[in-house]
Design a protein around this nucleic acid. Structure first.
Lengths: 301, 301
DNA sequence: ACGTCCTATTTGTCTAGGACAAAACAAGTA
DNA sequence: TACTTGTTTTGTCCTAGACAAATAGGACGT
């Protein structure tokens, strides 16, 4: 059925591996080995594309491509867990309930999931809902995705439905005009925004004025936006998959584009892998975010 | 102030012009001409990045790079309008009201905009709100963005706020289990989703079962999702800026990955620029979408 | 004047291999 | 254990050439 082949551009789109990397791997490791069309251009079979996506997934987990490619096909379930073991240590009471929510997603039952979450939101209130339900649930989904028991589209479904819940909840909050003006966005190439939404929910609860600009803002535009909105804080999010190499340079450039009195906060699991920097405040947990907000308020009378 | 320089990767991220294109333009047209760092790598000044983004904007409008680069700097306001003239012919009565909404965005007054839109939604009902407010407003924003009177971040703000409104409205609709199961998403590289949300709103009103998967689904994953959800229809959206060259091949590949009895619909302003194809049904307006839905229902008893 | 076919130019993407720096690892030492 | 140093791995960037798809311009016929 899958007789279709993929051009190198299509593979780049679908796997997130750059053309350069694909060619380099072919040169160095002898994989992937696409066939060629009449023009001598690479044609990747669907099978190799799948393997590449799998490799990419494990790489985002911290594995190295050389090893992964060497491993024939037993890697599938074998290399699954590694970093994710130490996390989720306690919360055993809630664990089961969260598992149920996850099951609903795995059954692709959007309606039931939404209803269950709505119920939870009503019961816990927004703050605890974010901290005790959405955050751990997202971590669980991440773990499941990493070890392959979640398909990509299932993760997308989870993300989309949960985003809607959070946005809806945020919309119902009264707009408290006190506190700092926070501009929330992400840099180009970074499309994940769930974490930013969680932060927005918490900040909005605290009465901060949140300005959500969606994802993928060019750096210079972030600068302009900060100026136009007179933002006190620019909050960025970097996901696990974002190339860590690029982050420090990115923050440095951004720092130069921003007004001096505008704070720059960078959060998300992507920033845990980079070293300290003076260009931005690194925020790794939701509690960190709340602490940072409180600290900011302390400093600005 | 802007002494920062951009690596070629940063420019690619910020402008959407590929590294290949940037190097090729330098070779052919002599622009941009970045300086080099100690390693002989390109360093683009912020000024050139801005010009590049401007050129990209005009290219998405249909202009050609050769001409644009030749034009010194008078191009700015001059080449602004071209394709967008014939649209928005009548609706002069509403025109002013829409203009007011636009003004709120330009003043960066998120709260007032949301309130005004909520009011409009309550007055018009969701269907007319989508067709008579959101759709023309989005077109207006597009026009304003194209001719440069909207900043990128203003367009982002509009998009984000409007997405929230639509999602919120959709969430309040009762889930009617009749009608086809429609899977809504976009291919990788395509991040715009507003049009898809409008369609979702209209379809949900018609009682169709909509499954929103967010943006940027790898092709093979779309196939899996369609199978898992037993989707009757896969609806994709392509924006103006999406490289038209890639669309036919994309649809062809997708067609091969999808079950034969799953319909493939492609919409958005991106598809107006491509020729007919047997791989997918092309949908260029919201009315088209509703017609297509009615037709589907007619064919499936 | 309008549409159609054909040719020429424009433009993007692909290919090849070489070079190098940053990150990750390994090993040796305090 | 904690640091420093050297080695391997890995990604990105470079140049320069080739080609095909899209577009524009012109000739032709209606």
């Amino acid at each position: 059925m899958n007789t279709a082949t993929f051009s190198i551009a299509a593979v780049e789109r679908d796997t997130g591996l750059s053309k350069d990397v694909l060619r380099m791997w072919e040169r160095r490791y002898g994989f992937p080995v696409p066939s060629r069309d009449n023009n001598g251009e690479r044609c990747y079979p669907a099978e190799q594309v799948d393997r590449l996506r799998q490799i990419k997934r494990l790489m985002d987990l911290g594995h190295r491509p050389g090893k992964l490619i060497a491993t024939p096909e037993a890697e599938l379930g074998a290399l699954t867990s590694r970093r994710s073991k130490p996390v989720t240590p306690d919360i055993s009471a809630d664990e089961d309930e969260l598992g149920e929510l996850l099951t609903l997603i795995k059954q692709h039952d959007a309606a039931a999931y939404q209803q269950a979450m709505q119920q939870r939101l009503a019961r816990q209130g927004l703050q605890r809902f974010v901290q005790d339900t959405v955050a751990p649930l997202t971590r669980l989904v991440g773990d499941n995705w990493e070890n392959g028991s979640f398909e990509v589209f299932e993760e997308h479904l989870y993300t989309e439905l949960t985003k809607r819940l959070l946005r809806q909840a945020i919309a119902t909050l009264p707009g408290g005009p006190r506190g700092p003006r926070v501009l929330l966005t992400s840099v180009p190439e970074e499309q994940h925004i769930l974490g930013l939404l969680m932060v927005e929910a918490l900040f909005a609860l605290e009465g901060a004025e949140c300005i959500p600009l969606g994802t993928q803002m060019p750096l210079l535009e972030i600068g302009r936006a900060a100026q136009a909105h007179q933002a006190d804080i620019v909050a960025l999010s970097f996901s696990q998959a974002f190339p860590p190499r690029q982050i420090p340079g990115l923050l440095q450039q951004l720092r130069q584009v921003l007004p001096a009195n505008t704070a720059l906060w960078a959060g998300g699991s992507g920033v845990t892998r980079i070293g300290k920097t003076s260009d931005a405040e690194l925020i790794t947990t939701l509690d960190d975010a709340l602490r940072a907000l409180a600290a900011w308020r302390g400093q600005h009378t």
